[in-house]
């Protein structure tokens, strides 16, 4: 009883705290000074059409590097927790999984290539359209999830996933260092030529970094999906 009252009080207190936001008093007439500076400076400084991408990859690029590290730690945690040994399955013969239906197998064959291509499109155009490395990486992981569902006995190659992840992570830091040596700071996109706003090759190193993030996120999420099957050695 006591616990229910406390839970009710906590929820009611949070509702009271959120009420001003829900009533629209948080909606401003104009962005703050920082946001306005980003909106005017990002196209002029970096040639980036998508200002959200400019913030994620360059203005707050260091945060994104840290975020990718958090994602890596979570992937490593899931992979370490869900091995056959840790789950107590040991050397027991793996139970036969039911085969996938023909609809799923056929659809997987048709869709996998398209999904991977769409994911690559999303992260290559992250500086021009709504999208980027995280979204594109998730789409690529979806393609690999379809493959795992269609062939329940199969496993993603651990070596390839680790190679893609570590190489793209190292290249991300490398692009950041390039910015430190050739431009004005770590992760500065002006290390590469800025090009014309709105063209595919523009915004300096932003599309390169976002593509590397896309590959890294795709490999990490695929690793999580493979581990969640729970029959990894």
């Amino acid at each position: 009883m006591m616990r229910r009252v406390l839970v009710f009080l906590a929820v009611a207190g949070l509702a009271w705290a959120l009420l001003p936001l829900a009533l629209g008093s948080g909606v401003p007439e104009a962005p703050g000074a920082l946001a306005t500076a980003y909106l005017t400076d990002a196209p002029a400084d970096f040639g980036a059409a998508n200002i959200v991408t400019a913030i994620v990859v360059s203005y707050r690029g260091f945060d994104t590097l840290g975020e990718v590290a958090v994602l890596f730690a979570a992937t490593a945690g899931v992979g370490a927790l869900l091995t056959r040994k840790r789950l107590g399955l040991g050397d027991a013969e793996p139970e036969a999984k039911p085969a996938a239906t023909e609809i799923l197998v056929t659809a997987t064959g048709l869709l996998t290539g398209l999904l991977v291509m769409f994911g690559v499109y999303i992260f290559l155009h992250g500086h021009l359209t709504p999208g980027g490395g995280f979204q594109g990486g998730v789409v690529i992981a979806t393609a690999l999830l379809l493959g795992l569902l269609a062939r329940p006995e199969s496993h993603l190659s651990h070596g390839i996933l680790a190679a893609v992840e570590s190489l793209s992570g190292a290249a991300y830091v490398g692009m950041g260092l390039l910015g430190a040596f050739l431009a004005w700071g770590f992760l500065d996109p002006r290390a590469l030529p800025l090009g014309r706003i709105g063209s595919l090759v523009s915004a300096g190193s932003i599309p390169v970094i976002y593509s590397l993030i896309g590959l890294k996120v795709g490999a990490e999420l695929s690793g999580i999906l493979d581990a969640l099957k729970g029959d990894r050695e």
Binding site: V52, V56, E67, V70, L71, T75, G132, F134, E220
Partner: peptide
């Protein structure tokens, strides 16, 4: 954008 991916992991 960053919070969504971290939330998933």
């Amino acid at each position: 954008l960053t919070a969504i991916v971290i939330g998933l992991a």
